[in-house]
Amino acid sequence: MNFPQREDVLDQAERMTDVLVRIHAELEEIARRIDHNQAMIAKSTWNVGAADEDYVKAMQDADLSAQRIAGVAGFLRALGDASKPDWRINTAGATSTLKLTELIRAIGTTDALIAAKPEDDAGNVDLF
């Protein structure tokens, strides 16, 4: 088995602060989308669902999820701010675990050639 040499891995390494900035931005976007979607759903369904305890709990859970994701994003940003600029990491292995092409583009290795992956592999959207 041929393992990459240490020099090869270091050549592909990027600044940790750059990686954390990308992850921070993606998590902030996810939190924003959850907030927006929750508001749109509530606008359309609140009159009917407000009396249903499970509905209210689900809406509160969506709000909490957005807040938690935004909190993790802020935490990662603070780690990036505290990181030394010479800290480097090769993210190629981690990037290869991602299934969504847009996520690969958002947080993956910046210099990687991105081949579109079949989005069906990531799961289906369930509409009910």
Rank of each mutant, 00 (worst) to 15 (best):
N2H: 04
R6N: 14
D8S: 07
V9A: 02
V9H: 10
L10R: 12
D11N: 07
Q12N: 15
Q12W: 07
A13E: 14
R15V: 10
R15H: 04
M16E: 10
D18N: 02
L20N: 05
V21E: 12
V21C: 02
H24D: 00
H24L: 00
E29A: 12
E29F: 10
R32Y: 14
I34L: 08
I34M: 11
D35G: 11
M40P: 00
M40H: 04
S44W: 09
W46A: 01
N47P: 08
G49Q: 05
G49N: 02
A50I: 11
A50Y: 05
D52K: 06
Y55L: 07
V56G: 07
K57Q: 11
M59H: 04
D61M: 10
A62V: 00
A62R: 01
L64K: 05
S65K: 03
Q67T: 12
I69Y: 01
I69R: 00
I69G: 10
I69M: 01
A70T: 02
A70L: 08
A70V: 02
G71Q: 14
V72C: 06
V72E: 12
L76Q: 00
R77W: 05
R77K: 06
R77I: 03
A78P: 07
A78F: 09
L79A: 10
L79M: 10
D81K: 13
A82S: 15
W87M: 13
R88H: 15
R88F: 13
R88V: 15
R88A: 14
I89K: 09
N90R: 14
T91I: 05
G93R: 07
G93V: 07
A94E: 15
A94D: 14
T95L: 05
T95A: 06
T97G: 07
L98R: 01
K99G: 14
T101E: 06
E102H: 12
I104R: 00
A106L: 03
I107D: 02
I107A: 00
G108I: 05
T109A: 11
T110R: 08
T110A: 07
D111T: 03
D111C: 00
L113H: 09
I114M: 00
E119P: 01
D120F: 08
A122Y: 13
A122M: 11
V125G: 05
